[in-house]
């Protein structure tokens, strides 16, 4: 690094700056346009906070945001529970079964979301109406089911990756000291896996807030989540409230991202490991 800078270095630097400008341009535009007092999002008329007031005033907007946050929380808890157990099993009880299970997780993560969406719609209708399991007619249940699939796979990967990197001797020691398997799990394995569990849970939450395609298919009228509300507003004309809510949601996402980052940092991960964890790769 101590060498003198070459032309290539400057070109690379410029390239990086350009790519960042490209990545942030639409986000900045949305943030600026959330202060648009005009009736339509696209044409900026004058500066003001009217759109933020409209979030509180318009029940449809408020309810959509509430549904999203509620579903996000439940889906995150659910995916974290299932994913953590599966991740622990994969890391600590390896065997031939892991190959099959990872195959299933891979299948879940590579299937285009639109295929999940069109598959879930008739399936939930079948469960709810033909089999009479009326819980599947509930809008929030349907959304949680749809949102939990990909997240479960992501949490499993993250928890597994963390535990595989840690020595199993602590758990063996615990067993040698006559702790029951349950106590070992609760007092040793779980605390070891905690950073990954928390990171996975927050990722599951943001994934659920973001989910549009599956939600659009499985939602029931009355429990429309925020992205689906935006999608339908796309046809009837986008209003500045959409940008205002997005700006607030962006802040929420930033806070949860920072939390994930801090949790992983404290657990001693390098920034590369954090990047891998946060994208599920």
């Amino acid at each position: 690094m101590g060498e003198r800078r070459t032309v290539t270095d400057y070109l690379l630097y410029a390239w990086g700056a350009l790519v960042f400008a490209f990545l942030f341009l639409p986000i900045l535009v949305i943030m600026v346009y959330s202060f648009n007092e005009g009736r339509l999002l696209v044409s900026f008329t004058e500066f003001g906070f009217g759109s933020f007031r409209a979030i509180v005033d318009r029940p449809a907007v408020r309810s959509a945001v509430m549904v999203s946050i509620q579903t996000g929380a439940i889906a995150a808890v659910f995916a974290t529970l299932l994913g953590t157990l599966a991740g622990v099993a994969m890391a600590r009880r390896p065997g031939k079964w892991v190959l099959w299970f990872v195959g299933l997780l891979l299948l879940v993560s590579v299937t285009p979301e639109i295929v999940d969406a069109v598959a879930l719609l008739p399936w939930l209708v079948f469960l709810g109406q033909d089999l009479g399991l009326s819980m599947f007619d509930n809008g929030v249940v349907r959304l949680v089911v749809g949102h939990s699939l990909f997240s479960t796979a992501v949490v499993s990967y993250i928890v597994r990756a963390r535990l595989v990197g840690l020595d199993a001797q602590l758990e063996e020691a615990s067993a040698d000291l006559y702790a029951s398997p349950l106590t070992t799990f609760r007092r040793v394995t779980l605390p070891l896996a905690m950073p990954a569990v928390l990171a996975g849970g927050l990722l599951a939450f943001t994934l659920s807030l973001d989910n549009t395609i599956i939600s659009a298919f499985v939602q029931v009228s009355g429990t429309t989540p925020w992205p689906v509300y935006v999608l339908s507003a796309l046809r009837s004309g986008l209003r500045p409230e959409i940008a205002a809510v997005s700006t607030l949601m962006l802040l929420l996402t930033l806070v949860s991202l920072m939390l994930v980052w801090l949790v992983l940092r404290r657990a001693g991960d390098s920034s590369t490991q954090i990047a891998r964890t946060m994208t599920g790769t």
């Binding site: 990545l23 942030f24 341009l25 639409p26 986000i27 535009v29 949305i30 999002l41 943001t206 807030l209 973001d210 549009t212 992205p227 935006v230 999608l231 796309l234 986008l238 959409i242 940008a243 997005s246 949601m249 962006l250 996402t253 930033l254 991202l257 990047a275 946060m278 994208t279």
Partner: peptide
């Protein structure tokens, strides 16, 4: 790089 990735997909596209 991660921030746009976790910003709502639909909203970015609307941008």
């Amino acid at each position: 790089v991660i921030v746009p990735f976790w910003t709502n997909f639909l909203v970015r596209t609307i941008g």
